[in-house]
Design a protein around this nucleic acid. Sequence first.
DNA 1: TATTGTTATACTCTATAACTATA
DNA 2: TATAGTTATAGAGTATAACAATA
Lengths: 144, 144
Amino acid sequence: MGRTTLDTAALAHELRLAVMRFSRRLRNQRVDTSVTLTHLAALSTLKQHGPMSPGELAGHERVQPPSMTRVVVALETAGLVTRTPHPTDGRQVVIELTPAAEEMLTAEAQAREAWLAGRLHELTVEERAVLREAAEIMGKLAGG
Amino acid sequence: MGRTTLDTAALAHELRLAVMRFSRRLRNQRVDTSVTLTHLAALSTLKQHGPMSPGELAGHERVQPPSMTRVVVALETAGLVTRTPHPTDGRQVVIELTPAAEEMLTAEAQAREAWLAGRLHELTVEERAVLREAAEIMGKLAGG
DNA sequence: TATTGTTATACTCTATAACTATA
DNA sequence: TATAGTTATAGAGTATAACAATA
């Protein structure tokens, strides 16, 4: 086992611990309890990629379809997404953001991430640059 | 709102999404289902900082004391930690790793993080360096 | 009275398995 | 048969509130 392998194992260890604590911290910082972070993540994906099926959404969020079904039901109940039949494939449905959701995402963007943004603001420019790159790399790791 | 503030808000958004997906992915990659990642995190903290009370452990892990109680009970049942009375303060108990836990942590260190280490190995040296720095920064953000 | 830890209870998030409807 | 989605069920992880023991 070479030096790179040792380094990688150590990094895996540290990164796992840091990400777990950080994600817990993030999850507990929600202020608007009416919309959870999981719901927000789904809404953000719809905002970013446009209308899609529950299956596609589950793929994007890296959860199983039944998990996404529950999220979509909750969002529909809250009036934040609509479920309409797919135009050509009767098995599929299309999930789309409502104007209310668009408005909410826009209006509360800053407020929702206030804690994290505040903490990030305390960092140096260099540290933020590191996190910006790291976010991209983690996205790649999670997505592949 | 200046440019830095805008950048920070955008970074908060991207970082939150990336960390959530990444942590989900990590949580689902456990192979040895007998010990969950949450339990492992607690064991790693004990390994790193030595014996401590449930309250201290909860503080380290950034969870509430009742949550840690459940983790400790599970770990004690599994024979991975011991709960002994504090020598001078009768209210407190001291949580300590058993030899079995030490052995497990050492022996399975690589195997447990196999997925992540494998993925990290595919990255460039520069990307790993970014994640190494990011882990430290996220630890700081989670801990403060 | 204040602190430490536990118990009781409930909610969120996620999974797997089984089912329905459509292709 | 295969695919998309949902329902049923279960389990992990966490929280708040209430309680017991000790300082």
